[in-house]
Write a protein that binds this DNA or RNA. Structure first.
Length: 573
RNA sequence: CGGGGCGUGGCGCAGUCCGGCAGCGCACCUGCUUUGGGAGCAGGGGGUCGGAGGUUCAAAUCCUCUCGCCCCGACCA
C-alpha cells in the first residue's frame, strides 16, 4: 500500500474528548472516528487490525469445532419476553418499533435467538454437543459510554453458545473454550489473566473473565500467588479476627450527640473502628434489609444483591430508615430491630463487645454481643475484599491489579432452555432442556486493550500478529529519484514475498514521516535515506525497541522477511 | 439519573465577564527554497460562532428554551 493512495488522516494533536491512551491513539493514528457518543466508524487502519483479531478468533474457534453462523441484529420482542429479559434487561437493551407497532431488540447478546434456533432444529442427544458462534455488531445502550471503543454503544463481539445433553459435556466444552481463549489472547500479544467473576444479568453460575492487564482498566482483580484470581465483585478474602476471646461485658446505652459516622462514633467513645458494627439499611426490590458489617470494612453490594436475589438494590433513604428502625440515619443497630430481615457478614460472628446504633437519635449501645443482644437471621460473605486480606485457598496475602475485560465464559445451565422450552430427547427418550454455555469476546475492545498495553509516548507498537501492516517503508526524500527507485524496489520485493507493507510515499519532510510511522506503529520500519544510499545500505528498525540495523540494500528484502518471520514466531502458540 | 464542564473553519484554542470589523496555531491549496525526528518565505481558500426564539441601533458575547459532547458518580453481559 502506498500512503498517498491510502486513507490515514493522522492527527498531530489529541482531540479534546479522549481521556485514555487507547482512545487518544486510535483517533490520532486514524484508526477510527467518532460518529456519536459511543459510536465509531473504523477507518482503514482500524479495520485492518480488527480483521486480524477476528481472523485469530475464527481460527481458534474453528479449532474447537465450533461452527460459525450469523444471526440478525434485529430480534423480535417475543423472544425476549419468553426468556423474561424484555423486562429484566432494562434500559441497556436498545429497542425499536417497526411500522406495524411491533417491537424488536437490537441484539446486545444472542441467547434468545440461538436458543430459538436450537429448539427448532435439534431433536436428539445424538446431535449434541454443538457449539455455534458468530462475529457481529452488538448494541448496548450504555448509561455512559467512555474510553472510546472500550465501552461503546455499538461494538463488534464474538459470541458463542454451546448445547449439551450432560453437565460433563458442558464442562468439556467450557475447558476447551478456556483453552481457546488463552490461545487467542496470547496470539494477539496480550498480557492477561483469567479470573473467576460474577455472572451478572446473563445468568448462570460458574464464569471466568479474561482480563488484560491495564492501569486504565475499569475492573479490579484480587489475586494470590497460589493462582487464585477473582474480580472485585466476586473476590473472597479472610480478615484478621479481633477480640474474639474477650469476655462479654454488660450492655450499656451511651449518649453520642450528633455522632453518625463510624469515625465520629468510635473517636468519641475512644474505641477502635473495628469495634463498631455498622448497620446499613437497604431497599431490595421494595423490601428492607438490615445488613451488618464490621465498622472498618465495606459491604460488597454485588455479593449482597446475589444473596438477596435482588434486581434492584439501593441504600434506604433517611425517611425510610426512620420508618424501618425508628431512629435517624447514623444511629441504626440490630438490637431490638423488628420486622426487618437482618443479615450479617460472616466476620460478625467473631465480634465481641460491639458498638452499635440504638435506633434513636444521639444514642449508641456499647458491649453489644451476638446471641445475647441480637441474632441475625443469617450470615453470608458480604465483605468487600481489600489488599492485604488473606487468600481463602492458601492464606497468603491478596494483591490487586486493574484490567480490561476482553472475554468472558459462562456455564448457563438450563436458564434459557427451560424458559424457552428448548428440549431434546435423551437416550431413554425423555424430553430434557439443553444444558448451555456461552462465551464472548469483545473484538473491538481487544483492539483497544492491545493499544493500552503496546504503546508509548510516540504511539503504538503493534504485536505483528495484529498489526495493520508488517513493514513500513520510509523514503526520506521523494524528490531524489535514486532513493525513490530503491524504496520502490524493496517495496515490490516485499509485496512479491507476501509481506503486508505500507510505503510512505508522501512529499513530506522526514521528521513528519518518522512521527507518523511511530504513531501508527507498524512493527518493522525500513528507512531509505540519503545517508544510507551513499554506503549502499538501508536501515531496519523495530518499532517496539528502537533497535536499528543497517543492511545492504540488495539484501533488504530478505533481511526484512527474516525479521517478519522472527516476530511472528513470538505470537505462535 | 445526580454533580461538574464544554460547543467559535478539518484539529487544538483565544475572544464571552464588560455587546461594536470573527481571530490565532496547526492542517489545506499555489509558487519558490528546503529534505534524517512535525522546515522557511510569499500568496490563497474555508466559519450563518451547536440550534430556535427574545432584548438591542448593534449579539459569538445578554436572556429564555433546546440539541449535542466530555468528565466524576450511580449503573454495567
Amino acid at each position: 500500500m502506498r500512503w498517498t493512495r491510502f486513507f490515514s488522516p493522522t492527527l498531530k494533536e489529541t482531540p479534546a474528548e479522549a481521556e485514555v491512551k487507547s482512545h487518544k491513539l486510535m483517533l490520532r493514528a486514524a484508526m477510527m472516528r467518532k460518529v456519536s457518543a459511543g459510536v465509531y466508524s473504523l477507518l482503514p487502519l482500524g479495520l485492518r487490525v480488527t480483521r486480524k483479531v477476528e481472523r485469530i478468533v475464527r481460527e481458534e474457534m474453528d479449532r474447537t469445532g465450533a461452527l460459525e453462523i450469523l444471526m440478525p441484529v434485529l430480534s423480535p420482542a417475543e423472544l425476549w419476553k419468553e426468556s423474561g429479559r424484555w423486562a429484566v434487561y432494562g434500559k441497556e437493551l436498545m429497542r425499536v418499533e417497526d411500522r406495524h407497532g411491533r417491537f424488536f431488540a437490537l441484539g446486545p447478546t444472542h441467547e434468545e435467538v440461538v436458543t430459538d434456533i436450537a429448539r427448532g432444529e435439534v431433536r436428539s442427544y445424538r446431535q449434541l454437543p454443538m457449539t455455534l458462534y458468530q462475529i457481529q455488531t452488538k448494541f448496548r445502550d450504555e448509561v455512559r459510554p467512555r474510553f472510546g471503543i472500550v465501552r461503546a454503544r455499538e461494538f463488534i463481539m464474538k459470541d458463542a453458545y454451546s448445547f449439551h445433553a450432560t453437565e460433563e459435556s458442558l464442562e468439556e466444552t467450557y475447558s476447551k473454550m478456556y483453552e481457546a481463549y488463552t490461545r487467542i489472547f496470547k496470539r494477539c500479544g496480550l498480557r492477561f489473566g483469567a479470573v473467576t467473576a460474577d455472572s451478572g444479568a446473563i445468568g448462570g453460575d460458574v464464569t471466568h473473565e479474561f482480563m488484560v492487564f491495564a492501569e486504565t482498566g475499569e475492573s479490579r482483580v484480587f489475586a494470590c500467588k497460589c493462582g487464585y484470581a477473582a474480580t472485585e465483585e466476586r473476590a473472597e478474602g479472610g480478615i484478621e479476627k479481633r477480640a474474639a476471646d474477650e469476655e462479654p461485658l454488660p450492655l450499656e446505652k451511651v449518649s453520642t450527640p450528633g455522632m453518625k459516622t463510624v469515625e465520629e462514633v468510635t473517636a468519641f467513645l475512644r474505641k477502635e473502628p473495628w469495634r463498631l458494627l455498622k448497620t446499613i439499611i437497604y431497599n431490595s426490590d421494595g423490601e428492607y434489609v438490615a445488613v451488618l458489617m464490621r465498622g472498618d470494612r465495606e459491604i460488597n453490594e454485588a455479593k449482597l444483591a446475589k444473596v438477596l436475589g435482588s434486581s434492584s438494590l439501593e441504600l434506604a433513604e433517611p425517611e425510610e430508615i426512620l420508618k424501618v428502625s425508628g431512629g435517624p440515619l447514623g444511629f441504626s443497630g440490630p438490637v431490638g430491630l423488628k420486622g426487618v430481615r437482618i443479615i450479617a457478614d460472616r466476620s460478625v460472628s467473631d465480634m465481641v463487645n460491639m458498638v452499635t446504633g440504638a435506633n434513636e437519635a444521639d444514642a449508641h449501645f456499647v458491649n453489644v454481643n451476638l446471641g445475647r443482644d441480637f441474632e441475625p437471621a443469617e450470615f453470608h460473605d458480604l465483605l468487600q475484599v481489600a489488599e492485604g486480606d488473606t487468600c481463602m485457598k492458601c492464606g497468603e496475602m491478596l494483591t490487586s491489579w486493574r484490567g480490561i475485560e476482553v472475554g468472558q465464559i459462562f456455564k448457563l445451565g438450563t436458564k434459557y432452555s427451560t424458559a424457552m422450552r428448548a428440549h431434546f430427547l435423551d437416550e431413554t427418550g425423555t424430553e430434557r432442556p439443553f444444558i448451555m454455555g456461552c462465551y464472548g469476546i469483545g473484538i473491538t475492545r481487544t483492539v483497544a486493550a492491545a493499544i493500552e498495553q503496546n504503546s508509548d509516548d510516540d504511539g503504538i507498537f503493534w504485536p505483528i500478529s495484529i498489526a495493520p501492516f508488517e513493514v513500513h517503508i520510509l523514503p526520506t526524500n521523494m524528490s531524489d529519484p535514486d532513493l525513490v527507485a530503491t524504496a520502490d524496489e524493496i517495496y515490490r520485493g516485499l509485496l512479491d514475498r507476501g509481506v503486508e507493507v505500507i510505503m510512505d510515499d508522501r512529499e513530506e519532510r522526514p521528521g513528519g514521516k518518522f512521527k507518523d510511522a511511530d504513531l501508527i506503529g507498524v512493527p518493522i520500519r525500513i528507512t531509505v535515506g540519503e545517508r544510507g544510499m551513499k554506503d549502499g545500505v538501508v536501515e531496519i528498525r523495530l518499532r517496539e525497541t528502537g533497535k536499528t540495523t543497517k543492511v545492504e540494500t540488495a539484501g533488504a528484502v530478505d533481511a526484512a522477511l527474516d525479521m517478519v518471520r522472527d516476530l511472528k514466531k513470538r505470537y505462535e502458540v
